[in-house]
Design a protein around this nucleic acid. Structure first.
Lengths: 336, 336
DNA sequence: GCTGTAACTGGAAGCGCTTCCAGTTACGTG
DNA sequence: CACGTAACTGGAAGCGCTTCCAGTTACAGC
């Protein structure tokens, strides 16, 4: 209940109690050198007795380090955030930060207001570094971040811009893996449902498909652009059935689109995988619940988050870590 | 590129340029009274010209307000966070905070280390207030929070402890709604799959079921405890089929458990809803994807988050908002 | 013209910490 | 025993802002 929570003791008070100067006490706390054993013990005793904890804000002002990093998810549709994808990123980031003494500030910068709040936060040095995700083309955020000269790590590469530091899944390799798998099954009329071709991921996954087809000596057999959603996948699948009714396999650039495609295939009376084999991409839970369970390309989003956080910590520490591309792997289930 | 990001100008520099004292400049920025028009304009001009933005940390030190609130999700299993539930809470909280100039710090305090980091954050006044969720029985967090005397809002009521401020869904009413619906369908042998009875939600939803049964003049027809997961729901359903093979309806205290139950019922050859009607609780996406689509009790988790944030803002502002119980409603789909 | 009041101003004292630096002490060397 | 060096110490100056308060100015009222 403690209606009147006693003010936290300050460093001055600790120093006084320990009978040393404030600077000596500060040195003890920061484990700085040049502290005699007697001094350290006196200070530590005082700290314990008084239950002292250094004030974060004061320390931040003096050191110019806030102890906070931001994870910014910039997208026009706030609903998008409900995608389990982001929850996974956050779990990954959190577990990595747990090893440090940094805290996580989450910015869902969708609206203009959200974005200006974020800009403000960066420019006022409210955080020590930032992780960025889901940037759409021409997002002003990248510019602001660069300009603020703040340590920044990108999750996924933005379009038209190669960031100094990023972590990405091997989308190219994954898409090739998926396509090669279909080829290996003996399929030759392999179509693809792409994500938005205005996004980096959309493009790269398509490229992986395309490359694998060429390498296999096959000609790409139909392409329909989806938008990474289930509905979009369904629409795209209908379009494909229309334009290339003889297809015998589909690589969908996301599980959700694959799920939509499966539904449409079922409605059209095509057996999966007998008539049409389907491979997805992501493996974020939904793949296990489709009918039939979806063969897909697995990427570890938690790892992505974890590595982003680790990388950011390194950058803040003044190191120069190398950007990272995380491996993907094929998970075979029933659909191919 | 700006390899050498120019240091942000300080208030002193602004004041100097405007030819006024630092305090005058501060007053202009904070829209405090007692500022002549000439002074204000001079300062505003200087601010614009220099691109000045007040340093967050310095301001925080002086005002003892960080401009940050925490959302703490305390649970033993970090994976739990991947539940779309929390993403919804976050979206709600974020949209509410967007109207203010508070930022959101996210704490996934699962491990002991995570919890001690959080404790530390609170005791060092790293945030202006906190929202708490998913506390398990005897979570030390509640105690720490109370002790820190920090504005705190709870999402869902913890067990054995009535917080000063909380927002909750009407779990009792929802469970009654669900049960009454089954009664109205003419079912009489209605069983229930509960959540963990060690949680408040688990208990309350059971109570709602129980009350509705009594009111309808029926006797509760079989109870099996699940754990809110799909697997738990399946196990519980098997147990019910064993113990009360003649049941004609089931109220599951979560959609996931309902999904598990549906699977088991299908395996057992019971038609839903013809033989057994099923109602779930939550309506978080999964309910639309079960077979048949699940009739369930809808609660708006985004609203929960939004209201928590609003309430916290009010508390921080020194107001005394009333706690809130958000309505639930029945959504009829195919399973009942 | 003088006073009283209100509007405004800037100096200065914080907020609680880090860190530089000049000064003190301890101690091994020649 | 004087001396140089290294280890330690505490005073003081920040970090960049808010806010109190004493002082100045402007101006209406007599």
């Amino acid at each position: 209940m403690a209606a009147n929570p006693r003010r936290q003791p300050t460093l001055d008070e600790v120093a006084e109690r320990a009978g040393v100067s404030r600077s000596a006490a500060s040195r003890v706390i920061n484990k700085a050198p040049h502290v005699s054993r007697a001094t350290r013990e006196a200070v530590e005793k005082a700290i314990k007795e008084m239950g002292y904890l250094p004030n974060r804000t004061a320390r931040a002002l003096a050191t110019r380090q806030t102890g906070i990093v931001a994870l910014a998810i910039s997208h026009d549709d706030p609903e998008l955030f409900a995608d389990p994808f982001f929850a996974q990123v956050i779990v990954g980031v959190s577990t990595a930060l747990e090893e440090t003494d940094l805290h996580l500030l989450l910015c869902l910068a969708s609206s203009g207001r959200g974005r200006s709040r974020l800009t403000n936060l960066l420019r006022t040095r409210g955080v020590d570094g930032i992780m960025l995700m889901a940037l759409h083309e021409g997002d002003p955020l990248t510019h602001i971040v660069e300009q603020a000269g703040l340590p920044a790590v990108y999750g996924g590469r933005p379009l038209h811009f190669e960031p100094r530091w990023y972590v990405d899944s091997d989308n190219l390799g994954g898409a090739r893996l998926a396509t090669e798998h279909l080829v290996r099954l003996g399929r030759t009329r392999i179509a693809t449902i792409t994500g938005q071709m205005s996004t980096e991921v959309g493009k790269v996954r398509y490229r992986g498909y395309h490359e694998a087809m060429i390498i296999a000596g096959l000609t790409p057999h139909g392409t329909a652009e989806g938008d990474f959603t289930e509905a979009g996948g369904a629409t795209a699948m209908r379009a494909l059935l229309e334009s290339c009714p003889d297809l015998d396999a589909v690589f969908a650039a996301s599980d959700k689109m694959a799920a939509g495609a499966l539904r449409v295939l079922a409605e059209a009376g095509r057996a999966v995988p007998a008539d049409v084999a389907v491979v997805g991409f992501d493996d974020l839970g939904i793949a296990e619940r489709t009918d039939p369970p979806l063969t897909t390309v697995h990427q570890s989003i938690q790892s992505l988050g974890r590595e982003m956080a680790r990388m950011l910590v390194a950058v803040i520490a003044g190191q120069e870590p190398a950007s990272l591309i995380l491996p993907t792997r094929l998970v075979r289930r029933g659909s191919a």
